[in-house]
């Protein structure tokens, strides 16, 4: 199979450490344009940290992250983050209405977000118009997650970073969100990095996958590396045994 893949994000010997511990250890690899790469691995593996390195919320302690072949630091941070959107794992919600939360990307640029647009984005994530003026803090975990997803879409990012975005959703919502993300991926050629602890989900949605453990990238490639893998750790992880 010979295919030309344009690299959008490239990690080159990336390490990330705090004073006490090493969180990412010498990670190198590439994410391709218009593809969905899933990031799997036990909790504490460093997946969230890796994602936050992609939009400059963190910077590597050593090594380099390239976005479209240019070092990430050559981009102005606010522009970079609008182009590389992230849906955060905790789905943080600001005090106020759902509308105010959705309008945030606009208000940060002193622009007004049209209500009709807001309703469109709400509908896309499976919430109806009546949610617009609800207090965001009163929403259920799943509803918050949906608002959080919609809010990230509003900047029309070229790259989407998704951090366990379906963890609080019921099965039918999981399916809706997966379909929505796949649709956006195909329609707009959005490059995606999707963290999931659910191997079945990684199989359903991913073109490629990275398997992470203890701050290291154990293996990367097409999603089918997740089965029939010779690596014992990966076999164990895939079959649900998460200890190493």
């Amino acid at each position: 199979m010979t295919q030309f893949h344009e690299t959008v994000i490239k990690f080159e010997n990336v390490c990330y450490e705090t004073e006490q511990l090493s969180i990412l250890n010498n990670v190198s690899g590439e994410f391709y344009k218009g593809k969905i790469t899933t990031l799997v691995g036990p909790s504490g593996a460093g997946k969230t940290t890796l994602l936050k390195l992609c939009n400059g919320l963190y910077s590597p302690t050593s090594g380099e992250v390239y976005i479209q072949n240019k070092p990430i630091n050559s981009y102005e941070p606010t522009t970079l983050r609008r182009n590389v959107g992230i849906v955060l794992q905790s789905a943080p919600i600001l005090k106020g209405t759902v509308y105010e939360n959705l309008a945030l990307p606009y208000t940060l640029q002193n622009k007004k977000f049209p209500k009709t647009e807001a309703i469109k984005f709400l509908n896309n994530v499976g919430l109806d118009e009546s949610f617009l003026h609800r207090h965001a803090e009163d929403l259920s975990g799943g509803q918050r997650q949906k608002v959080s997803i919609a809010r990230t879409f509003i900047n029309h990012p070229e790259v989407l970073l998704l951090d366990e975005i379906t963890s609080a959703l019921d099965p039918s919502s999981v399916n809706d969100i997966e379909q929505l993300i796949l649709k956006i991926n195909q329609k707009y050629q959005v490059t995606m990095i999707w963290i999931t602890h659910n191997i079945e989900q990684a199989k359903r949605v991913g073109d490629y996958t990275w398997v992470m453990m203890n701050g290291q990238l154990l293996e990367s490639g097409e999603t089918n590396i997740l089965w029939n893998n010779s690596n014992k750790y990966i076999q164990n992880f895939v079959s649900g045994v998460q200890e190493v």
């Binding site: 919320l57 983050r81 990307p105 940060l108």
Partner: peptide, 13 residues
């Protein structure tokens, strides 16, 4: 912290 990171991640200063 989460809310601060949220605003930064949406392109806020």
């Amino acid at each position: 912290r989460d809310q601060i990171e949220l605003i930064l991640s949406l392109g806020g200063t």
